[in-house]
């Protein structure tokens, strides 16, 4: 076994198999595990995927939402145990791989057209 195959086999133990297919422009809900004292609970975070990074075990998505008039962006390590679930709620039609232009827009201009040719 060569070095790359060995590293892949180590990563394989930590890769999630139940991740949904996510595209840039989708609206998603991410369940984030939060520890409060001794208690652990799952907090949902809803928003639009504005960027993805495909890096095997280091795969991330950047999810943007507007909360109380303030733009919030969170980067989620998809294979992290802290991300308990991801639900795709709506497929979006976009023409860019990175939607950083949404940062300069407010209100109605941040809407993304829905697309129906991809199953949820």
């Amino acid at each position: 076994m060569n070095a790359e195959a060995i590293i892949r086999s180590i990563e394989a133990e930590y890769l999630k198999s139940d991740l949904p297919e996510i595209y840039v422009g989708d609206s998603v809900e991410v369940g984030v595990k939060i520890k409060e004292g001794a208690k652990e609970r799952v907090q949902p975070y809803k928003g639009t995927v504005i960027a993805m990074r495909n890096g095997g075990i280091n795969e991330t998505i950047t999810v943007r939402k507007t909360f109380q008039g303030v733009g919030v962006e969170r980067v989620f390590l998809l294979n992290s145990p802290l991300v308990s679930y991801i639900k795709v709620e709506r497929r979006g039609r976009v023409r860019r791989a990175k939607l950083y232009y949404l940062r300069d827009r407010v209100g109605k201009a941040t809407r993304i057209k829905q697309r129906f040719d991809r199953p949820l």
């Binding site: 070095a3 590293i7 180590i10 133990e13 075990i57 280091n58 992290s80 145990p81």
Partner: peptide
């Protein structure tokens, strides 16, 4: 040395 990667701590969830 074979290379670098990352793994997760299953309890705390840190990479």
């Amino acid at each position: 040395k074979l290379g670098m990667t990352q793994i997760f701590n299953q309890e705390t969830g840190t990479a």
